[in-house]
Amino acid sequence: MFIKNAWYVACRPEDLQEKPLGRTICGEKIVFYRGKENKAAAVEDFCPHRGAPLSLGYIEDGNLVCGYHGLVMGNDGKVVSMPSQRVRGFPCNKSYAILEKYGFIWVWPGEQALATEAALPVLEWAESNEWSYGGGLFHINCNYKLMIDNLMDLTHETYVHASSIGQKEIDDALPTTKVQGDRVITERHMENVEAPPFWKMALRGNNLADEVPVDRWQICHYYAPSNVHIEVGVAHAGHGGYHAANDKKVSAIVVDFITPETETSHWYFWGMARNFQPDNAALTAEIRAGQSKIFSEDLDMLEQQQQNILNNPERKLLMLNIDAGGVQSRKVIERLLALENTDSKIQNINLA
């Protein structure tokens, strides 16, 4: 089950060019396209005539045209026309609330009347010239909550990412976790350690020495329903760590938008926003390449983990202290799901 009354990243604006885009989100097949006045739109990816995917069609005069028999669908889900046919009695498709902001196309799979821009996460870095962002997209065959577990417990870096961001000191620095409403925060600080290869590259990119001891931090923020943003960085040791002056550190936000597809797959929009050398395109490309390699290492682990879980449904997984961030995030999801289901039942009773 998925939280439907929430905003999810569906795609990037550049994904909606001349052709429609079909994508399954929270178990619903949706077609995204640019409609009238070049505005992003989304409707159920199902032609009411013979069930063909509308995403295999094309766009004409701001409407979606089915590529099977030419049925024309408006962005409100109503059939506009069909060659040689009267369409007044044709059933409507579900249409979806859409927003284009922060460099992403967002979709609200639930009730349109509840969708407001105020419900979007606030991404200050996305609207500031002092920050630069680079990222990508992976399709991963595992439940989205396994990815949240992964991102809220970075202990795995020592082992999965040993050649890039992992180091033994991560195991020795125990994390702390706290819950603030629908938000979970797990943080870990390491003092006077050697910077791992990825962070040595970042230090050089900001014209800082990379062979000196550093203080390192990881602060993971879970935002319901499935966003994780991680404050990360290193500073030359002895200068205040997380609070060091900008000329003594490199810091960034690892941006993770996790959009459920099915119970065993999700769309993973990953990236890094940084506030040093924001105009350095070469550095952005180097960081993006490094991140892509790192997240590719997670991909194989997560997909095989999911398969193991499916093959062993009777096995109960252990919950240790290091899992607190993921455990608390799952509790938030369960609470919001229960609340949404209760509200839906009450609404159905009132309509009966």
Rank of each mutant, 00 (worst) to 15 (best):
M1T: 06
C11F: 05
C11W: 00
R12E: 15
D15M: 10
Q17F: 09
R23T: 13
V31K: 00
Y33F: 15
R34A: 10
E37K: 12
E37G: 02
A40D: 12
E44A: 08
D45A: 01
P48F: 03
L54C: 09
L56M: 14
L56N: 10
Y58E: 14
E60A: 14
D61L: 14
G62Q: 11
N63R: 10
L71N: 01
V72W: 09
V72M: 09
M82N: 10
M82K: 11
Q85M: 14
S95N: 14
Y102E: 09
G103N: 04
F104R: 00
I105N: 03
P109E: 02
P109V: 07
G110S: 05
G110C: 08
E117F: 06
E117A: 15
A118Y: 10
L120H: 04
P121Y: 13
A126F: 07
E127L: 10
W131V: 05
S132N: 03
G135I: 05
L137D: 02
L137R: 11
L146C: 11
I148H: 01
N150T: 11
N150F: 00
L151W: 05
L151A: 08
M152F: 01
A173D: 00
A173N: 09
Q180V: 14
E187V: 02
R188V: 04
H189N: 08
V193E: 04
K200P: 01
D210G: 09
D215L: 11
W217F: 08
Y222N: 12
Y223W: 13
N227V: 15
H229M: 12
H229L: 14
E231I: 08
V232W: 04
G233F: 02
A237G: 07
H239T: 15
H239W: 03
A244R: 03
A244L: 03
N246E: 13
D247R: 01
K249A: 03
S251R: 01
S251C: 01
S251A: 12
A252K: 02
A252S: 15
A252I: 00
I253S: 05
I258A: 00
T259R: 08
T262W: 11
T264V: 11
S265I: 07
W267Q: 07
M272E: 06
M272G: 00
R274A: 02
Q277F: 07
A282T: 15
T284V: 14
T284S: 08
A285M: 08
I287C: 01
A289V: 10
K293D: 01
S296V: 03
Q304C: 13
Q305N: 13
L310Y: 11
P313N: 11
R315I: 13
R315C: 13
L318Y: 12
L320I: 13
R330S: 14
I333S: 07
I333W: 09
A338L: 09
A338M: 04
N341V: 03
S344T: 12
I349V: 11
A352T: 06
